[in-house]
Simulated scan of single mutants.
Amino acid sequence: MQDTIRLTVNGSEHDVPAAPDTPLLYVLRNDLLLNGPKYGCGLGECGACTVLIDGVAARSCVIPVGHCTSHDIVTLEGLGTRAAPDVVQQAFIEEQAAQCGYCLNGMIMTARALLNRTPNPTETEVREALRYNLCRCGTHVEIVRAVMRAGQLQSGT
């Protein structure tokens, strides 16, 4: 049975027709046409679908949309713009921390969540935060470097 569910996504309110147990990822991609979060494993294991819910990284493929009302959801599209990217996005560009790009949504959103709670993390903290985000292309070195750079950009060091 479908309900009308009100979500706050990237600072805007949206009423979407969805069953409360529909995965948030499906609503973001299919109803709101936000393609930052990717469908990877569908089990919350790979991180490609990561979004921020109230500033915390969350796997949108396993979160029922009915649990997301009254929460602030941010997708990759809500972090920054082409003209003014978030420091994490800027650092990923500067470090060329991408190859195929499929994992980038999860890496960037997880990095943003890390920097929300730890503004200038150590390399160990970065590696720990990203340990459950899968990248099959092998750009882990560049990704860690990008997150370290983002911390420096954010703190002005």
Rank of each mutant, 00 (worst) to 15 (best):
Pro119His: 14
Leu104Asn: 04
Val144His: 08
Arg136Tyr: 06
Val141Ala: 11
Met148Leu: 15
Cys135Ile: 05
Thr118Pro: 09
Ala113Pro: 10
Ile108Asn: 02
Leu104Lys: 00
Ala129His: 10
Pro121Gly: 12
Asn105Tyr: 09
Glu123Ser: 11
Tyr132Glu: 00
Ala113Leu: 11
Glu123Arg: 15
Pro121Leu: 11
Leu134His: 06
Asn120Asp: 15
Asn116Glu: 13
Thr139Tyr: 03
Arg117Thr: 14
Arg117Asn: 13
Ile108Glu: 01
Val126His: 00
Ala146His: 00
Leu134Glu: 04
Leu114Lys: 11
Cys137Glu: 08
Arg131Ala: 14
Met107Asp: 08
Arg145Leu: 03
Tyr102Arg: 02
Leu104Asp: 02
Ala111Thr: 13
Thr139Ala: 13
Pro121Arg: 13
Arg127Asn: 07
Asn105Trp: 08
Thr124Glu: 15
Leu104Pro: 01
Tyr102Ser: 02
Tyr132Asp: 01
Ala111Phe: 07
Asn105Gln: 08
Ala113Gln: 11
Arg127Ala: 06
Val141Asp: 08
Ile108Arg: 01
Val147Gln: 02
Glu125Met: 09
Glu123Leu: 08
Tyr132Leu: 03
Met148Trp: 00
Val144Ala: 03
Ile143Glu: 03
Arg131Tyr: 04
Glu123Gln: 15
Glu125Leu: 11
Pro119Asn: 09
Arg112Thr: 15
Val141Asn: 07
Val126Pro: 00
Leu114Trp: 12
Thr139Arg: 04
Gly106Leu: 01
Asn120Ala: 15
Asn133Ala: 05
Tyr102Glu: 03
Gly138Leu: 01
Thr122Gln: 13
Thr118Gln: 15
Arg117Phe: 06
Leu115Arg: 14
Asn133Glu: 06
Glu125Gln: 15
Met109Glu: 10
Ala146Phe: 01
Arg145Ile: 02
Asn120Pro: 05
Val141Gln: 12
Cys103Ser: 12
Leu114Asn: 14
Arg145Lys: 14
